[in-house]
Amino acid sequence: MSFTMTKHGNVVVVDVDGQLIVGNRQELKQKVLDELEKGERKFLIDFARTGYIDSSGLGVLVSLSKKIREQAGELRLADLNDDLKTLFELTKLDTLFQIADNRDRGLESF
């Protein structure tokens, strides 16, 4: 399980490799908040290599979304597989986040 951050233009892309769950959610939160602190404002979290997300992981995404918005920034998501789409639909979080089919479309959407 790891999080990789790369810069694409003025967008910080975060790859979630493995799971986003109670055991690692704080690591993701801290990494994104560190970038926010440094002045970054546009974030795209790419789930192409993500297995599953639990309620703690979903909670961190909601928390980050609020914190980024408070700083006049934007958080978008991309590349949800069918299981993750089901999870976002079940919890209605698909109504809260802007979700792109893939990374390129996510980057273009900013």
């Binding site: 639990d54 309620s55 979903l58 909670g59 909601v62 079940l90 919890t91 209605k92 979080l93």
Partner: peptide, 22 residues
């Protein structure tokens, strides 16, 4: 119910809901 408009913006409250739905 974590899916109501008031609750969907909360960070917590989805654990048992997901257990029941899945």
């Amino acid at each position: 119910d974590p899916t109501t408009p008031a609750n969907v913006v909360r960070e917590d409250g989805r654990g048992l809901f997901l257990m029941r739905r899945l």
